[in-house]
Design a binder for these strands. Structure first.
Length: 581
RNA sequence: CGGGGUGUAGCGCAGCCCGGUAGCGCGCCUGGUUUGGGACCAGGAUGUCGUAGGUUCGAAUCCUAUCACCCCGACCA
């Protein structure tokens, strides 16, 4: 591609409303333009990378046996009513009406549409398994769109849906997709990790997220450097840090702790380690009577060690809290504890509450907790002696670095990631309400077993940049760079020698299938270098009069400090070698 | 959704308090000189000052409404 036939529009300064580095760089490099909150134009330079991402995905999906089709962006509400998602999805689901007043949605995902296809088209077990996918525009009306294309409202997603005759088949389909995803992100040149993820209401163990590792990621990942254990912190199991409970060694004492509402402050005041304190988190579970009338909320006290954090997803799996909960109001807290937040604890309650201790807390002894009296804590608290054993002991905290790995093979480390893919076993959650069945060998209808597999195409663009940039701009991995190579001729418009050598080189590269761009603007070198470093093309060849006199051009990788001289005759070969062609 | 903030040229910003008919840098256009890290000189174009009302002789500036956008919060005892 000659730049004069393409379109490049860079900015020296990023628009003021850009919040993350990938968004700033994409805007500055002219890859995207914001049209509205969370809605972007993809400019030619951005689209080039997107197409490369899509093609890698497409090739690997096809190789894994999936079949591409295309389902519409606008879908009838009736389909979404069948699965009850019309009611359940909430305001993120964009709802529109046509001219007749009929309800439609703008698809955030396509389970309904694909299940509708499946129930109409799949009649026999002989047609199974099958995996349909498409790469299509999605819309989710995010509460707060941000992070550029990483959490936009409109975005492109590859979503695949497998259909199998039984769970064993679905497991195979799942494994095939898992393997395909490994290949896809590897080919893109990204550092990533497949982590175990929450399965929500569906349960089971088959759910993995593919996380691109980046410090700026929204998700926290726990992994074990000594094994292959990796899980989203939402899910990562926290083992008890105390194997057993030590015998009580102190009497329980009410201690003044004026103004010290946080565990850290109390520990410091009393010169105790933070690990000797217990924090109290009060939740409320709404209750209704048989007729569905609201009853007073049931109040729960969750106890965590002072240095630990509540994991709400884990809490939501505790029996009694699994129907939904919220944080208790201050009124509810005062009513049950007789005290304002800051000095709460399990001892001296005004009204009974249900108590859940984290696994570690359950094995603590001589610990410190609020006294349910403003400006007082108890020290030397012991289970069984000073208060009854907790009603329930559960894993309700986030793991922290240094925790033992759940597989028993070392300790956990934490890192941050950007979720770019998710593979998920669905079972019959869509096929059942939509009555998507096939006939088995005995002519009996059976529900289709499903799995779904998503890749955020446009999010990948941002994630790749978050992972690969420096203060000058983007540094694309070869496979998803808008161009693989840029040729910067110095004096293209006025030096015949440079022009001839450049044209020859450009012709050679194009003929070898290299995706090269020739900067034929005749710009000054500083302008060209700055632009292409911003855009992030990984390989640069500089053709200048000075080098040509020695028979050389210059090669510089975007990560190289300096250019190296390469004989004119060797450069095309060098590039092909670098690109592994 | 709650709180805060901002809307002035393609981008970044000043002007607003104290009303008098809009400016700076970058970019863009023309000509010239330059040409190995975002050149220089000269000339030039571009704004319904987010929108709609109101106050006023006069509104970017004051008032009201509205829209858009951004930030923070909604993991906490």
């Amino acid at each position: 591609m000659r730049l004069s036939k393409f379109f490049l529009s860079t900015l020296r300064e990023a628009p003021a409303d850009a919040d993350v580095v990938s968004q700033k760089l994409m805007l500055r490099a002219g890859m995207i333009k914001k049209l509205a909150a969370g809605i972007y134009n993809y400019m030619p330079m951005g689209l080039k990378s997107i197409r490369k991402i899509e093609n890698i995905i497409r090739e690997e999906m096809n190789a894994a046996g999936a079949v591409e089709l295309l389902m519409p962006v606008v879908q009838p509400a009736e389909l979404w009513m069948e699965t009850n998602r019309w009611q359940k999805y909430g305001p993120e689901l964009m709802r529109i009406k046509d001219r007749h007043g009929r309800d439609f949605i703008v698809q955030p995902t396509s389970e309904e549409a694909v299940t509708d296809i499946a129930r109409n088209e799949i009649r026999s077990y002989r047609q199974l398994p099958v995996n349909f996918y498409h790469i299509q525009t999605k819309f989710r009306d995010e509460r707060r769109p941000r992070f550029g294309v990483m959490r936009g409202r409109e975005f492109t997603m590859k979503d695949a849906y497998s259909f199998d005759r039984d769970e064993a088949g679905a497991a195979k389909s799942y494994d095939a997709m898992y393997a395909a995803y490994q290949r896809i992100f590897t080919r893109m040149g990204l550092t990533f990790r497949a982590v175990k993820a929450d399965t929500g209401a569906i349960g089971g163990s088959r759910s993995h997220e593919f996380q691109v590792i980046a410090d700026t990621g929204e998700d926290a990942i726990a992994f074990c450097p000594d094994s292959d254990y990796a899980a989203n912190v939402e899910l990562a199991e926290a083992l008890p840090l105390l194997a057993s409970r030590a015998a009580a060694g102190q009497p329980m004492v009410k201690t003044p702790t004026p103004g010290k509402a946080r565990c850290e402050d109390v520990a410091m005041l009393l010169s105790l380690p933070l690990t000797q304190t217990v924090k109290s988190i009060v939740l409320a579970a709404e209750k209704t009577d048989e007729n569905g009338n609201p009853l007073p909320a049931e109040i729960w006290l969750l106890l965590l060690r002072g240095d630990h954090e509540l994991n709400e997803i884990k809490a939501s799996k505790v029996t009694g809290l699994n129907k939904g909960f919220r944080f208790a109001t201050e009124g509810e807290i005062v009513e049950h504890f007789g005290c304002k937040p800051g000095y709460l604890g399990p001892i001296g309650l005004k009204k009974p509450v249900r108590i859940v201790a984290d696994r570690t807390v359950a094995n603590m002894s001589d610990f410190v907790s609020g006294a349910n009296e403003e400006d007082f804590h108890f020290t030397g608290i012991n289970w069984g002696r000073d208060l009854p054993e907790p009603e329930a002991v559960a894993d309700i905290r986030n793991v922290v670095a240094g925790d033992p790995s759940p597989d028993g093979k070392g300790v956990l480390a934490l890192q941050r990631g950007i979720e770019v893919g998710h593979v998920f076993y669905l079972g019959t959650v869509y096929s059942a309400p939509m009555k998507a069945t096939f006939l088995d060998e005995n002519g009996k209808p059976q529900l289709l077993e499903m799995g779904c597999y998503g890749i955020g195409v446009t999010r990948l663009l941002g994630a790749a940049i978050e992972q690969n940039h420096d203060d000058k701009g983007i540094i694309w991995p070869d496979a998803i760079a808008p161009f693989e190579v840029v040729i910067c001729p110095l004096g293209y418009d006025r030096n015949e020698g440079v022009k001839v050598a450049t044209e020859k080189l450009y012709g050679d590269l194009i003929a070898s299938g290299v995706d090269a761009v020739l900067d034929d603007r005749g710009e000054r070198p500083g302008v060209m270098f700055a632009d292409w470093e911003l855009v992030g093309v990984p390989h640069r060849i500089t053709v200048g009069d000075r080098g040509l006199k020695e028979g050389n051009v210059e090669y510089q990788h975007r990560r190289d400090e300096k250019a190296t001289a390469v004989p004119v005759g060797d450069i095309a070969g060098l590039i092909k070698q670098k690109l592994a062609r």
